[in-house]
């Protein structure tokens, strides 16, 4: 049901009955290591190419999610997925392995919540009993496609972010045990003209702010209604900008805990990740790995995940275009 201008309210309360995360070595070395289902000790995961490694991450995450949901693969009706690769190939190949009807989406790093929102809407509208949402990213495929060859000696500025190697997937069902997806606010493109691809956090911050404000306007909620609000991958440069913009506009973010998945997934003082994590996998592994476990334990009652995405391509950047950004917010709560 539409509430306000851009929020889907899920009155039938779809449930995340199972989720799983698979990550690479750097995430396994980070503070959330214990929350992931599988940690690969090597970046290449014994695959012949980075692209194959990324696909493996997603295939494992979707398999584990189905196992954790305790359903049979045949019961799954739809898979909604997306990633950062050209023509979202990681998801196409993973969907081939799954063999279920598939909707591929692209939302750059906001894909995690975009797919969760779409899958929840399917279940909420009785269009599916079980829908799977998934996304993935790999540090080396992202470097190769968006920046330089992985072995190229280019110096990254401190504002640059480190693409998370990881995949997350969640099974959404009409009923069952698990956290409830309450509502989703779909963002619009915000582009303030930033052109530096090594400063994505600052470019994406206004998009996160726009979606958070729209979410509060549409739902009538305030920051106090959430135990935790996390942005997707603004990291140490973008997150303070978002906080400042929200406080300036009179949104009392001090009434909640406001954090960022890109800052949570790594120990940025110890690990060499510049400003923090980014990528589709960033908000996916933090949400599906860390946050859902804390909700299950009762440490968090209700969280808002605002996944941010920078929708640039190497082509648009080289042609001098600025970076269009977006953010999608999904509210998840524990079952009463």
């Amino acid at each position: 049901m539409l509430r306000g201008n851009q929020t889907w309210w899920f009155e039938n309360r779809p449930v995340i009955i199972g989720a799983a995360t698979v990550v690479g070595p750097d995430e396994g070395d980070g503070p959330l290591a214990a929350d992931f289902d599988l940690v690969h000790p090597e970046l290449d995961m014994q695959q012949k190419s980075w692209e194959k490694a990324e696909r493996l991450l997603l295939e494992q995450a979707t398999d584990f999610a189905i196992q954790n949901a305790r359903i049979d693969k045949d019961q799954l009706q739809f898979y909604v997925g997306g990633d950062l690769m050209n023509q979202i190939i990681s998801n196409t190949f993973a969907a081939r392995a799954l063999g279920v009807p598939y909707i591929g989406v692209f939302g750059a790093c906001s894909t995690s919540m975009e797919t969760l929102a779409i899958a929840s809407m399917m279940v909420n509208s009785n269009s599916a009993d079980y829908a799977l949402a998934g996304t993935c990213s790999h540090n080396c495929t992202a470097e190769k496609q968006f920046r330089y060859p992985t072995e190229y000696g280019s110096q990254k500025p401190p504002t640059a972010q480190y693409t998370v190697t990881g995949a997350g997937a969640a099974v959404i069902a009409a009923s069952g045990d698990g956290p409830v997806v309450e509502c989703a606010t779909i963002g619009k493109i915000v582009d303030l003209g930033i052109k530096d691809p090594f400063n994505m956090g600052a470019a994406m911050a206004p998009a996160a702010v726009d979606t958070i404000q729209s979410h509060f306007n549409d739902t009538g909620r305030t920051p106090k209604d959430y135990d935790l609000i996390v942005t997707g991958d603004l990291a140490s440069v973008g997150h303070p900008i978002a906080t400042e913009l929200l406080m300036r506009d009179g949104v009392p973010m001090d009434q909640t805990v406001f954090n960022d998945c890109g800052l949570m997934v790594y120990d940025i003082s110890r690990q060499k990740v510049q400003a923090g994590g980014s990528g589709c996998g960033c908000s996916a592994v933090v949400t599906y790995g860390h946050l859902l476990k804390r909700i299950a334990k009762g440490e968090l009652k209700r969280v808002l995940v605002v996944a941010t995405g920078a929708l640039l391509s190497p082509l648009s950047f080289q042609q001098g275009e600025s970076i269009p950004c977006i953010a999608h917010a999904v509210a998840i709560s524990g079952k009463e």
């Binding site: 980075w50 060859p149 190229y152």
Partner: peptide
Amino acid sequence: SAALEHRS
């Protein structure tokens, strides 16, 4: 680096 990266 380009040669290694695009070997695949």
